[in-house]
Design a binder for these strands. Sequence first.
DNA 1: TCTGGGGTCCTAGGACCC
DNA 2: TCTGGGGTCCTAGGACCC
Length: 423
Amino acid sequence: MNLLALVDCDNFYASCERVFRPDLKKIPIVVLSNNDGCVIARSKEAKSMGIGMGVPWFKIKRAYLAQGGRVFSSNFALYGDLSNRVMHVLSGMSQSMEIYSIDEAFLGLHHLQDPRDAYAFGIHCRSTVHQWVGVPVRIGIAPTKTLAKVASHIAKKRNGGTGVACLHTAGQIKRALRDIPAHEVWGVGRQLSSQLNELGVISAFDLSEVDISLIRKKFSVVLERTVRELRGEPCLEIQEKNAPKKQIIVSRSFKTRINNQEELKPLISNFAARAAEKLRNEKQKCSKVSVLIATSPFEKTSQYRGFASFQFSTPTNDTRSILLGATKALNDSFKGNYIYAKAGVLLSSFSCQEVEQQSLFQDMRDGLLLQPSAELMQCIDLLNQEQQQIYFASQHPESFARVQTKMMSPRYTTNWHELPTAS
DNA sequence: TCTGGGGTCCTAGGACCC
DNA sequence: TCTGGGGTCCTAGGACCC
């Protein structure tokens, strides 16, 4: 039997905050989203205080701090770097690995002769990551990805356990599935679970027993795969190569609401410039830039979501073209008399940077007839690498400047001025 | 006062082809 | 009275994930 392991960092962002702050062990920690809007990560202690995922910070701030909880603004430089370190350690422990997210990876365990060795491997893997990087992980081992996720759930639930759970016999799998509600299965979200409940499917075990053809007819091939995977039939392979991105989004909620296009424009330009930079970093070009703007769904005032795209006749990754396209899309999506809370820029329809498919007709739309310059972009990217130094005229530097809020921890591992000191 | 940001995959339906 | 039957490609939107 081929097994695979899901390695999942415990409460990743909260754990990262503890790596260089051992004094915070056992103390509740929450990490906040951009603009310190809402909670995006909680330590075990914060969870047991009843702090929910995604709750607005302002609602819990007072009570939480009064109970001795600690809070951090998100420090993605730190989390990204620690994630890379975890992944690097894991990559040395298996021949096949898929980095699934910033805090999760699947490992192929073909190298294990006997499934009974899997558990020992998990223990070894966990202690190595903990020792070398300082981040606690839990490990679920099973014949399919979906079951490995289930196993990881079990490893989490077993309080005071080893942090490793292994499901490889039919009996183990059956018992595990009975204990887990269907909505906790990977790939079953809110919509699906309520529809499944109506069919009498409550537990993961129920789901694994449903007639496949019914699932296919009533739902989709996606859920069918989930059911098969729960039965131990692998449908999702480990994807070792990280596939090229198919879209890039840069979006933000605003600190203060905006109701006019003039104020929106420099923000959209910031997002577009950042997106173009990411695109070049991916070594791709795009044929479409879209702009999305939205009012706050929490407001009682009238709601509006605007979306408009601009198509390039020739694929580009030149910031200047992307800025022009984004400005036009903003024009098309904007409607007056609304109070906007969020906006973003989306790049899509990618093609490889090297391949140049010229348009049969030249793009005569005003202003877009400019000579793209890879050298210029390269130069700008180089100058902006460490710190943003070059801006385009339509951008608004201050509104996008990285604010080092008081609640953000130092970038211990990625900035010379913020190295941890030993005393 | 204050409610995240970034992705993927699949499907239905329209446009178009022979 | 009778109004084909496949295909492909593209896109928008929905569902999910972390």
